[in-house]
Design a binder for these strands. Structure first.
Lengths: 227, 227
DNA sequence: CGGTATCCCCGTCGATACTG
DNA sequence: CAGTATCGACGGGGATACCG
């Protein structure tokens, strides 16, 4: 665990656990439903597996996470104590949404964006059968420009290579534009109106497609009024 | 500022700023009303002045704190962005109250306890004129056993040497006991009933004394039911 | 899939002393 | 009161490779 503050204050005691690098982002991933080691990695691509392993161990020892080994696979599941960190994560995210400045180019990441979006597909809104949403980011790094979300029943998969299925709709936008939509800084309708986002496919599906995605939980946070 | 996570997520952006050691405790001090460098030090006695200075600079640069130099003295005042961290601090403190284990002996600190308590004196409840509350911690380190809170009008001062005024009431308890009262883990009435706390002085004042103190903001947080 | 092992660097932090 | 200055240790964590 992290170094002690030698303070009896509950804030200090909590931060001894939570203020280490990556810890709260790991909690964010757990709170948003990832349970498998490699799924956690996908949400934290810049975190080394060694460190992820260590952080998970710390959370287990602290009683926030339970490591379940069953059916030959491992799942990390939040305990009640861990689950109660959701309000903390939400308070921090809401604050960040309101007060932390612009997103740098280095923070735009199609993989991460798609990984986030795939966790928030509104399955009830998607047509029955298989739906394939193809994303095109013309300005992304070569090899990271084309992505597919394959939605089948209760499953959503992210692909960075063509899965070969028929594409239902294609969304084309600059990576920053799609990220802003996801974060609630830009509305679907405005992006479409200005041409920053282009959706192609059969008319009915094209119109419905934005409704298939629930945006980031922070998209609805009111921004500070500029005065 | 801290290292970047290279993530566009608002939680990540916020934590780049907030997850460094001491930062959120400093915010806690600012949120609870300390504005002067040396007052901040009193609330963070184990933090070196160099580091405190640096952290303050980071918060100023991040736009959370404004440094005001006026009348030959310096005040650090939270900006709107900084003030909005209160819910974050409260969420973390509430979680810590519910889920972080026992307080270690090394965390018991009479100076810190008195500093916290002096910020939460219920001035309207204290008798007019000067009130002196003396605290005795028989088990504290030699030289840190006797403390005085001198309350005059709008001012509360902490003394670790006898200020020489007549003592209104004296409270005697083990340091852990007084800390538990402050944190809401033990009620005044129970502490008095069990004899863990002794209050001496004129009857009316003795009975009124507990009402002079507002407890920690986390004292009222419901504890997890044990089941 | 679910992790270990290793290595090394560099930055953070703590300690202490000192200043206008 | 409100900070600087300096210095050294340590260990966190990034990178990379590897394993069952």
């Amino acid at each position: 665990m992290g170094a002690t503050y030698h303070q009896f204050c509950p804030v200090a005691k909590a931060m001894e656990l939570l203020d280490e690098r990556w810890t709260l982002l790991l909690v964010r991933e757990l709170v948003t439903g990832s349970e498998r080691f490699n799924d956690l990695r996908r949400g934290l691509p810049r975190m080394s597996p060694a460190l992820l392993s260590r952080r998970l161990g710390q959370l287990v020892r602290a009683g926030l996470v339970e490591r379940r080994h069953e059916d030959g696979q491992v799942r990390y599941v939040l305990t009640p104590a861990g689950r109660e960190l959701r309000p903390v994560v939400e308070a921090i995210g809401a604050w960040g949404t309101r007060w932390v400045g612009e997103i740098g180019d280095a923070e735009l990441d199609p993989q991460l964006l798609l990984w986030d979006m795939h966790k928030n597909v509104n399955l009830d809104a998607v047509p029955a059968g298989r739906t394939v949403v193809r994303f095109r980011f013309p300005d992304a790094a070569p090899g990271a420009r084309d992505w597919w979300l394959v939605i089948t029943g209760r499953e959503v998969d992210v692909c960075d290579t063509d899965p070969g299925f028929e594409v239902t709709v294609t969304m084309t936008a600059r990576l920053r534009c799609m990220t802003e939509i996801w974060l609630g800084d830009l509305s679907w309708s405005r992006a479409l109106r200005t041409g920053a986002l282009e959706v192609t496919g059969p008319e009915a599906l094209r119109r419905a497609a934005p409704g298939w995605f629930a945006l980031s939980v922070f998209a609805g946070v009111p921004r500070p009024s500029r005065d």
